[in-house]
């Protein structure tokens, strides 16, 4: 038979354990992101041009191949690295060369970046080079937006949808 002191002690232990679980299951709060700021996320996966242009096979070359292998042109698998640049209010905040993925460098180039910024009106310029050229960019987009506190703006790139997408 339990003594009253034991019952009280057990109840206290249970209460302390419950208190510990109850408190630590929600407290202390954690500030992941300053609610007064905004966030720009840049992410896309895009494949650049092949490193060299395709060329047509000569008749002699085609003849040398087995009948089922006689593809008219040869295209290299490897793609060029992308050149990406992001400016915020005329200041370049991101400037990266994105190599292609894959063992043979034939996959898409990818990027995923988080850029916290102040809330308010901003002009964003995104530039991307995905061709073999050495200078300049193939895709340039200028976007003006008023970011509210706590807003998350995503910048994606999809050529089929017209290039850069701000969402």
């Amino acid at each position: 038979m339990m003594k009253p002191a034991q019952i009280i002690a057990q109840a206290t232990v249970y209460a302390l354990f419950a208190l510990g679980i109850g408190v630590l299951s929600t407290r202390p709060s954690y500030t992941h992101f300053d609610p007064a700021r905004a966030l720009i996320k840049v992410s896309f996966a895009h494949g650049g041009e092949p490193v060299t242009a395709c060329r047509k096979r000569s008749r002699a070359e085609l003849k040398a191949l087995a009948a089922n292998m006689r593809k008219a042109s040869i295209c290299p698998r490897q793609r060029v690295a992308l050149r990406f640049e992001l400016s915020l209010d005329n200041t370049v905040i991101l400037s990266e060369t994105l190599p292609p993925t894959g063992w043979r460098g034939d996959g898409s180039s990818k990027i995923y970046r988080r850029i916290p910024t102040t809330a308010g009106r901003h002009t964003i310029v995104a530039k991307l080079r995905d061709s073999r050229r050495d200078q300049g960019f193939d895709h340039v987009s200028r976007h003006t937006i008023t970011l509210v506190p706590g807003q998350s703006l995503s910048i994606d790139f999809k050529p089929a949808h017209g290039g850069f997408i701000y969402e």
Partner: peptide, 9 residues
């Protein structure tokens, strides 16, 4: 479209 700010972890 929003960034989670203060969280009760």
């Amino acid at each position: 479209a929003e960034v989670p700010g203060v969280l009760n972890m």
